[in-house]
Design a protein around this nucleic acid. Sequence first.
RNA 1: GCACGCUUAGCUCAGUUGGUAGAGCGACUCGUUUACACCGAGAAGGUCGGGGGUUCAAGUCCCUCAGCGUGCACCA
Length: 707
Amino acid sequence: MALSEKLPEKLLRPYDPKATEERIYKIWEDSGFLAPTGESKPFTIIMPPINANGSLHAGHGLVMTIEDIMIRYKRMRGYKTLWLPGLDHAGFETQVVYEKKLEKEGRTRFGMNKEILYKEILDFTLFNSKHIKSQIKQMGASCDWSREKFTLDDDVVKTVHQTFKRMYDDNLIYRGNKIISWCSKHQTSFSDLEIKDEERVESLYYLKYGPFTIATARPETKFGDKYVVMHPSDARYKEYKHGQKIKLEWINGPIAATVIKDESIDMEFGTGVMTITPWHDNADFEIAERHKLDKEQIIDEAGKLLPIAGEFAGQHIKRARPLIIEKLQKKGLVEKIENDYKHVVKTCYRCGTIIEPQIKSQWFVKMKPLAEKALKKIKKGEIKYIPEHYKKITIHWLENIMDWNISRQIVWGIPIPAWFHEPRCIPKSEREKDVEKCKEIIVSAEEPVCEFCDAKFIRDPDTFDTWFSSSQWPYITLQYPDNKDFKTFYPTDVMETAGDIIFFWVARMIMMGLYVTGEIPFKTVYIHGMILDPKGEKMSKSKGNVIDPIKYINDFGTDALRLGLVVGNTPGTSLALSPEKIRGYKNFANKLWNITRFVLENSPDGEKVKGELKDEFDKLRDDITSDMENFRFYLAAEKIYHYVWHRFADEIIEESKKNAEVKSSLKYIWENCLKLLHPFMPFVTEEIWQIMHPGKLLMVETWPHDN
RNA sequence: GCACGCUUAGCUCAGUUGGUAGAGCGACUCGUUUACACCGAGAAGGUCGGGGGUUCAAGUCCCUCAGCGUGCACCA
């Protein structure tokens, strides 16, 4: 009988992803199987929340592909799978994107009403969220939309506030007046991780400072320098005593300098003598703290000199430097200038502006106690890292961790629930002496009332570092502490993310998870590599080589893109993605289509495979299953690809044309191949399954196993 | 300065506990026979960065050198 008469008409034409993918996704969504079902063992992945300030990029495409592969595999293995999607307000990142938008419109955030600015960014974010979500669906992500979370949802903010209060009460968060990293362009402080080191060649100025010569790369900070520091055992300066005062002529006239002896001085550098600017330099700040020295601000938050600079006051430091040198030269205070001084400057990771350290009152998290708990768990191997060397990197970072500044001077973020007492108490007439009991700081989401006086509390205008809330993502999304989801799905199974946020996010999630819940937030960390452009270069907007994954989907179909992203992509290693590679996998999707046509036309139902063909397939199945269990998706994908095309299609089907027994085995093998392929190429395999088994879903078929 | 990673076919990369090198793409030669030209058959192409060591056996383990990349620290 000519079975082809029964074939659906579309099977007679090439496979058309555009006519298929959206329809198939809808079927999955409507099926209810995107949510966890059944009472079996759970398998959980919390999706790294996607920044809602743009479009999906190739890296996101990879996240969606790898996580979906894991979820689909486990779902077919019968696990109660939860893949929880989320979107990120992405505090500073989004604010920067929005500022650029404002700039294009000829506007600026400075001077804007804060509420209006917040509302505008919120609208912008919500608009982007819709777009991003539809792109996540285009990638075929079989995540549970009924549990979707946004980092500014009320319950998220509530938990973040609770954690802050708990840590404050536990003395793990403190208000510190310390030296912090300040970006004068973005007008906010940063944590150490947002600072990028950049090597530059600049001038090193040797200046006469009374009887000494000091070397400096930053003459514009030197106005307030009144301490001259040297090593206690430097023989060259043994005649000068610690605390000795020396009168000398400086930039704007005579000053009295005080000699300080400190062991942190490198006798080999320059002349072995330096002056310090504690307000604008980390090392100088430390020296000043040790010897309880005065600290004076020289540069304001916009990068302009303060009145202490005399005639230079109000000038931007960039412009002022040559003028200051000119003046020093006129006064005969410049001994020499070295123009090839190579050193590293700290810059803002977003705009490259040189970071100006400033002393500011900010909130800090005491990291040492948190890191210790995390280190114990990681060293014991309770969290598995793939690839493993990320474990070493994490341990190294945790062992040398510094306190974390979580205050940001930006509008777009979760407000810090802290209130400061008005500077002056307003005594309640009848109990005047109670005023001494007034609390300076109260941590509370709602405005507090002072019990002891009539003064008001002023809200901390700052917002949290976005990573402070992100680091709580696993237990927040599962609605710690009382929700059934938290009890069922925490600790989660896999955290799959990019290597560049291993400290920003992964390590902090471990610390916060352990602190708040007492348990690790995930058992395995899977770090994927970066996606590079076809030439192997990092994609960036400024280089103009950013690849839009949606373009690839339009040109070749999602399944082809997914396979292109996963084959040959070992964890932690970068992958150059080229259209040629993806085109190859588009052809493969079509190959599946044609195989199906041949199988349906030639192979009867119900036959099982026997003998060598069976042994061969069983070995492949076991091999691939083992690869899936061990996160070797790049190998599993390649193996099934190779078997289907070059063994099953090229040889077994050809053989079946002459051999009836082989022919009768085709359908059984093919159906099992489709199952093995499904996690990688969900759309085309599901579409084929719908043709072969109308009304059934491949997504929830059982993964091939030993009978 | 310290640490980590990479170096395998023209290109992009695999190679899981050591067993005598693979895939995709590209280039080459054929080919339309029961699905598929978004195809098939065939052949070409590598002293696995250099050097040394362990071993019966090394792309794989150890040492060393070089190049590339990344992270961290110091930085007057």
